[in-house]
């Protein structure tokens, strides 16, 4: 218990997620193994009456790349968006179960989703830079967090981390919309790391990019892995096999009675096991290309 509380205090940057990590969380904190950063337990996501994801329990260890794979509509993006409470923005969306981050339940009433998103950053499927300059894009997060000084250092460091600095250092004040798709996506990664998050969520970050841009982003993920824990949703199984340490396979459970599909987590394990020796038949069918 003491360990994880200390960890939270260590990572404090001016504000804590909840004002008081009180004794109510002690028991949960105690159970979390030291290197488990995120623990989802029995997570269900509903859109209105429709259950999109059923009973997902998943641990994410620190500094690993976890790939979420599975056929379309299996709820992997929905699960990913639970980790930074992005589903809060969707009307009618409801999440049950717990997701604990360093022992704190992210869905606790006291938790401010804005603070969650400052620690758990996100990169989206389509590059979505702000219609502002390159500099302002990267500086946006620190600015809304109230930072006024040292922005140019933060921008440079973040752009270097995203392997974009050399390409844009001479035109930081020109519009981000003038960049190519791959550059825009790396800019979005720079924007996400500029607030120094703990975790990066990537929702099919390469699906709109060509193979060269994809390779650059994969390379980039390997280098920034030492600083962050990365969860990536991907449709590309080769990509999951190339970059991830752990793979979680999702599929959709078809309810024949009313023809609704609910996403379920089939199995999770070290990536090489999932691809070479999966324990579930459905996983094997999927990774060998027999379905999905």
């Amino acid at each position: 218990m003491a360990d994880s509380t200390e960890l939270i205090i260590e990572r404090e940057r001016g504000s804590t997620i909840v004002s008081d990590i009180s004794s109510s969380h002690d028991e949960a904190a105690f159970e979390v193994a030291e290197d488990v950063l995120l623990r989802a337990e029995k997570v269900n996501v509903y859109y209105g009456d429709f259950r999109a994801v059923k009973d997902v329990s998943l641990d994410v260890r620190q500094h690993e790349i976890l790939a979420l794979i599975g056929p379309s509509g299996c709820g992997k993006s929905t699960v990913l968006r639970c980790y930074n409470r992005m589903n809060d923005l969707i009307k009618d969306a409801r999440v049950t179960g717990t997701i604990s981050y360093r022992g704190v339940n992210l869905y606790d009433e006291e938790v401010d989703p804005v603070e969650v998103r400052r620690r758990i950053g996100m990169v989206f499927q389509k590059p979505n830079p702000f219609p502002k300059s390159i500099f302002d894009n990267v500086a946006y997060g620190p600015r809304v967090a109230g930072q006024k000084k040292g922005l140019s250092e933060i921008v440079e460091i973040s752009l270097r981390k995203a392997a974009l600095w050399d390409e844009v250092k001479d035109r930081l004040n020109s519009s981000a919309l003038g960049l190519s798709g791959g550059q825009q996506q790396r800019l979005c990664i720079a924007r996400a790391v500029a607030i120094d998050p703990d975790v990066l969520l990537m929702d099919e970050p390469c699906s709109a990019l060509d193979p060269i841009a994809t390779a650059r982003i994969e390379e980039l993920m390997q280098t920034i892995k030492k600083d962050y824990t990365i969860l990536i949703v991907t449709h590309n199984m080769q990509q999951a096999a190339r970059i991830s340490d752990t793979t979680a396979f999702f599929t959709s459970d078809v309810e024949t009675r009313n023809d609704t599909r609910t996403g379920i987590l089939v199995e999770v394990g070290p990536t090489e096991n999932i691809f070479s020796n999966p324990s579930d038949e459905r996983t094997e069918n999927y990774v060998t290309g027999r379905f999905g």
Binding site: N84, M122, N128, F130, G141
Partner: peptide, 10 residues
């Protein structure tokens, strides 16, 4: 755009 801004803690 909204999601991007929320995503970095706005």
């Amino acid at each position: 755009l909204r999601e991007a801004a929320y995503g970095v803690g706005a």
